[in-house]
């Protein structure tokens, strides 16, 4: 069972995160201040960390900096009430791997932690992504399903790459918008749905087993099973 350390001084938020991670099949442990969290993160092996920005004794940014300086590569999801784009950039520059603004939906947090853990376990220089009979060659820049080449626009290619890198995992609309387009605002109504839908029609042509799955109210997933 993968272990996740929650460094969060607000007991209620920490409990909520823990409940959400436990439901997702993780062993969640809690730490309520920066120094203690850092000590535990360095002395034990965790698969991922969720880290609050504002903590007693040691600020969240300092924790992640110290962690990276000590050579720890554990993926860190920064969870903070500071939601402005600049705050995200600061958090990510300090060494965080992803940033989630409070208040958040539990499913969103779970999806992001899962994505981080998968990303950290994947070999860095992967050039060929495969989901079922769908192959994406990152070097040749082409997608092939059952030997048939699929024509993709640059953004569609980027979207498919992101989804296949996180195959088997639900991706929220916001996650997709942040990672694929690099924007942090609310894209409104059904913009992402339309993009995913268009890609889905190219990949899941009639007669083939559908790889795209929609999780109502949460997001999308690409999976072979």
């Amino acid at each position: 069972m993968p272990r996740v350390l929650i460094i969060e001084d607000d007991v209620e938020t920490a409990t909520e995160i823990a409940a959400c991670l436990s439901a997702g099949g993780y062993r969640a442990e809690q730490s309520f201040d920066g120094k203690d969290g850092l000590t535990r993160a360095l002395s034990q092996r965790y698969d991922a960390l969720t880290l609050d920005r504002m903590l007693p004794s040691l600020d969240g940014l300092e924790v992640v900096k110290a962690l990276r300086e000590a050579g720890s590569g554990a993926p860190v999801l920064m969870v903070s009430a500071l939601s402005d784009v600049d705050d995200r950039v600061t958090g990510l520059r300090a060494g965080g791997d992803d940033y989630l603004a409070k208040p958040f939906a539990p499913t969103e947090l779970l999806a992001r932690v899962e994505a981080l853990i998968r990303r950290s376990q994947r070999p860095a220089a992967e050039t060929l992504l495969t989901v079922g009979d769908l192959c994406l060659d990152l070097v040749k820049h082409e997608a092939v399903r059952r030997g048939r080449r699929i024509e993709l626009l640059p953004m569609e290619f980027k979207l498919l790459e992101f989804m296949m890198s996180n195959a088997g995992q639900i991706l929220s609309r916001r996650m997709i918008f942040e990672w694929v387009w690099g924007y942090y605002f609310d894209p409104g109504t059904n913009l992402i749905d339309v993009h995913v839908g268009k890609l889905r029609r190219k990949i899941d042509t009639p007669g083939l087993e559908p790889l795209f799955k929609t999780e109502r109210g949460v997001g999308y997933m690409i999976d072979a099973t």
């Binding site: 953004m155 387009w181 059904n190 913009l191 339309v194 993009h195 839908g197 268009k198």
Partner: peptide, 10 residues
């Protein structure tokens, strides 16, 4: 426009 083209199409 590139971002919204699919939505406009739909």
């Amino acid at each position: 426009v590139e971002l919204y083209a699919p939505l406009a199409d739909a």
